[in-house]
C-alpha cells in the first residue's frame, strides 16, 4: 500500500515538474483509464467526422473545392490513425477500440451527429467545428502523456489549413448573391450552438475535470476555452458580414470578453444519449464500411502470406 502511495507521489512530482509521462512509466490505473477513454473518443471523432463532410465531396461546387475537401477528409483519417496508435501504447488493442465504436459502447464528439444540409455547412464545419477542435487540440499539445502530446503536435500542424478553407468558403458565400449569403448565415445559425457545446459541460458540471487538471491531461477548463473561442469567432463573423445567432451577445468592457446567452444543455444531453439527428445513421455507416471492407483486410493478409511463402521457397 505504501509502495503504491510512493509511486503515486513520484508520478505526481513528475507531472508537477512538467515532465511527460511515457508508456513504460508507472502510472495510476485511473490515469491510464482516463487517457484510454479520452484518446479513443478523440480518435473515433476524427473517423466519424469524415462522414458529414464526405457527404459533400461529390457535390462540391468546383474542382478546387473538391480537391480541398478530399484532402481535408483524408487528413481526418490520418489523425484517427495517429490517435489510435497513441491509445495502443496504453495497452489496449486496436481491434477492441474499434469494436467499442462499432457496438455503440464508445462515444465520439456529438457535433458529428448533426446533418450537413447545404454546401455552406462545409464552410461552417471548417470554420467553427475545426476552429473549436483546434482550441482544444492546441491545449493538448502540452498534455502530460508523451505519445498523446506528440500526436497532437502533428495533428495541429496538419490541421492549420482546415479552419482557413472553411472560413474562406464562408467569406466567398457571404460576398456572393443574396441567396448565397443567406445560405452561409443559415449554416452559421445551425452550427453555432452545437460548436459551443463541443467544449463540454460547464466547469461546475464537469465531474472529471479537477482530476484531469491535476494530472495535466487538460490544461485549461471547458469554460475558458469556450470563452476564447467566442471572443475570436465573433470578430471573424463581423469581418465577413455574418451575425452570430445569439441575442444576448454583447462586448463587456469590464471583463474584456463577450457576454453571451445560454447553451441548451437538454439538447446536448439528448445528442450525447444517442438521440441526435444522425446518431443512428453514423453508426450504421461506420459498421457498413467496416463490414464491407472485411474482404480487403482478408485479401491483403492472404496476399502477404502467399508472397512470404514464395520468398521462402
Amino acid at each position: 500500500m505504501t509502495d503504491v502511495k510512493n509511486l503515486e507521489e513520484l508520478f505526481q512530482s513528475k507531472i508537477d515538474a512538467e515532465q511527460k509521462i511515457e508508456p513504460k512509466d508507472w502510472m495510476p490505473e485511473k490515469y491510464r483509464k482516463t487517457l484510454i477513454r479520452q484518446i479513443s473518443q478523440h480518435a473515433h471523432s476524427e473517423v466519424v467526422g469524415m462522414l458529414p463532410e464526405g457527404n459533400w465531396i461529390t457535390r462540391a461546387p468546383n474542382l478546387r473545392r473538391k480537391a480541398i475537401l478530399l484532402a481535408k477528409v483524408q487528413d481526418e483519417a490520418g489523425h484517427g490513425l495517429y490517435l489510435y496508435s497513441a491509445c495502443e501504447t496504453l495497452g489496449v488493442s486496436r481491434e477492441q477500440t474499434i469494436d467499442d465504436l462499432l457496438s455503440g459502447k464508445a462515444k465520439y464528439s456529438s457535433i458529428f451527429n448533426y446533418p450537413t444540409l447545404s454546401w455552406a455547412d462545409i464552410g461552417a464545419i471548417g470554420w467553427l467545428v475545426d476552429g473549436a477542435a483546434i482550441m482544444n487540440q492546441v491545449m493538448l499539445c502540452r498534455t502530460s502523456y508523451g505519445p498523446y502530446a506528440r500526436a497532437m503536435v502533428r495533428i495541429c500542424k496538419e490541421e492549420s489549413f482546415h479552419q482557413r478553407q472553411g472560413y474562406e468558403i464562408m467569406a466567398v458565400l457571404a460576398k456572393g448573391t443574396p441567396e448565397q449569403k443567406e445560405m452561409a448565415q443559415d449554416a452559421l445559425n445551425r452550427w453555432w450552438w452545437p460548436s459551443l457545446m463541443m467544449f463540454g459541460p460547464t466547469d461546475a458540471n464537469s465531474p472529471h475535470s479537477a482530476e484531469s487538471m491535476k494530472w495535466k491531461i487538460k490544461r485549461q477548463s471547458n469554460d475558458e476555452l469556450r470563452q476564447t473561442f467566442i471572443d475570436r469567432t465573433v470578430q471573424q463573423a463581423e469581418v465577413i458580414g455574418l451575425s452570430i445567432p445569439d441575442p444576448d451577445l454583447k462586448w463587456n468592457e469590464a471583463t474584456q470578453h463577450y457576454d453571451w446567452g445560454t447553451i441548451d444543455w437538454t439538447e446536448f444531453n439528448n445528442v450525447v444519449a444517442g438521440n441526435g439527428p444522425c446518431n443512428k445513421e453514423r453508426l450504421v455507416a461506420r459498421n457498413k464500411a467496416h463490414d464491407e471492407g472485411a474482404w480487403v483486410r482478408e485479401a491483403a493478409l492472404a496476399h502477404a502470406a502467399k508472397k512470404a511463402k514464395r520468398k521462402a521457397a
Partner: peptide, 15 residues
Amino acid sequence: YRHPTFYTMPEGAKY
C-alpha cells in the same frame, strides 16, 4: 492546398 498559406483570408480577420 494542404498548406494554410494557399487560402485567401478576408482583410482584418484575426486569429
